[in-house]
């Protein structure tokens, strides 16, 4: 069990690094070529993270990825408001955050990442 978490802890930085490189390349292409493919939007992303450590980590990972910036954080219920530059499909942007969240929770939780809820639109309070 603990071995699995250690393996995930080692995999997280490399997976995140690959994500950052890919996102940087996308943004660089947008900056260097005339015109822009960007479809900006502020998107609400409900989280499965619960502790402050988990929420802080995912918020910082979102900001560190070029193309997305965390604009606001709320703890109750844990939710991020994310500015996305390529948010023509909001579900796709949420999916990207959730993919990182999966990897993060696999490290921080003893029983692995919990299953994903729906796209979160039905959970408004």
């Amino acid at each position: 069990m603990i071995v699995r978490r250690i393996v995930h802890a080692l995999g997280l930085p490399s997976a995140f690094g690959a994500r950052v490189v890919a996102a940087s390349a996308r943004l660089a292409w947008d900056v260097l070529t005339p015109g822009s493919a960007s479809v900006p939007a502020f998107v609400r992303v409900p989280l499965r993270c619960r502790s402050e450590l988990e929420v802080t980590a995912i918020a910082n990972m979102v900001t560190l990825t070029p193309g997305t910036v965390t604009v606001a954080i709320r703890m109750d219920p844990p939710t991020l408001w994310v500015y996305g530059m390529y948010a023509s499909d909001e579900a796709e942007l949420r999916e990207g955050v959730r993919a990182m969240e999966d990897r993060l929770l696999a490290v921080t939780r003893a029983d692995g990442a919990p299953a994903r809820p729906g796209n979160g639109e039905g959970r408004r309070r």
């Binding site: 479809v39 900006p40 939007a41 502020f42 606001a72 709320r74 703890m75 109750d76 408001w81 948010a87």
Partner: peptide
Amino acid sequence: ETRRDALAEASGEEGD
């Protein structure tokens, strides 16, 4: 052209 429907709901009530 920024779509902001999701954030409009949040304005003024950010947590910590």
